[in-house]
Simulated scan of single mutants.
Amino acid sequence: MAKNLKPVALLLLMLNLCMYVILAIIGGWAVNIAIDRGFILGPGLRLPAHFHPIFFPIGNWATGFFVVFSLLAGVVGIASGFVGFTHIRHWSYHSLQPAAIIGLIAWALTVLAMGLACQEISLDRRNAKLGTMEAFTIVLTATQLFYVLAIHGGSRGPVPVERPHAVS
């Protein structure tokens, strides 16, 4: 494997892990706000006519979906960071596969959250912390892709083949 991409992958991994942790923290804060300030219905009252199943009192109509998918992307991204550290430590063909697949899953969820962040930006009226969460999501989309490309670029070389031992 190409050893010259190992420091690049490690730098991107640490950057992404820190950003995914911040994304998950802000997402958890937004979910807490939604739980604390959401709809409260008393006995005999009905749901409002335009009830939104993912209601967030901060932000706009895209906020609920954006927060949920960002929180998912943050948690999977943190898991990607832990698996990535194992791959960086071993830097072998066998540790590449789990790191690459969970990195791609985290990137796919981040791309989905980025699309919702762009929708939320276009709808306007949002909280400053949600703006930070949107910025982190957009930056993470690029840096997670570069991380996955860096660990794949480092995998160039001979693939180990396992052969059964000859019995004589």
Rank of each mutant, 00 (worst) to 15 (best):
F69R: 01
H50D: 15
G74S: 03
G38Q: 07
R37W: 06
P43G: 08
R46Y: 08
I54W: 14
F39W: 12
F65S: 06
P53N: 05
W29R: 06
N60V: 11
F69Q: 05
D36F: 08
G42C: 02
F51T: 11
A24H: 00
F56S: 12
P57L: 15
I35S: 12
N32G: 13
I40T: 07
L72F: 09
I58M: 13
R46V: 13
T63N: 09
G27L: 05
F39S: 12
R37Q: 15
T63H: 02
H50E: 13
V67E: 01
T63V: 08
H50Q: 13
L72M: 14
I40K: 09
V67P: 03
L23I: 03
G27E: 01
T63G: 10
R46A: 15
G44D: 08
P43H: 04
T63S: 14
F69G: 02
S70D: 07
G44Y: 02
F69A: 05
V75W: 00
A34P: 04
G28T: 13
F65W: 11
I33N: 13
L72Y: 01
F65A: 09
G27D: 00
R46F: 06
V68K: 06
L45W: 09
V75Q: 01
F55Y: 15
W29I: 04
P57D: 14
I25T: 05
I26Y: 01
N32P: 02
N32S: 15
F65H: 07
I35M: 08
A73F: 01
I58W: 03
I22G: 06
N60T: 14
I26L: 09
I26V: 09
P48C: 00
I26W: 03
L45V: 09
V67T: 05
F66Q: 07
F55S: 07
A34W: 04
G59W: 03
I33K: 14
L41W: 03
P57K: 14
T63I: 10
N60Y: 05
G38S: 07
V31F: 06
V67F: 00
P43K: 12
A62F: 10
R37G: 08
P43W: 00
I54S: 14
I26P: 02
F66P: 00
W29G: 03
A30F: 06
W29K: 06
F39Q: 11
I26C: 00
G59A: 11
S70H: 08
I25D: 02
N32I: 08
I40W: 04
I26K: 05
F65E: 08
F55L: 12
G28I: 03
G42Y: 00
L23Y: 00
F56V: 08
A73D: 05
G59T: 11
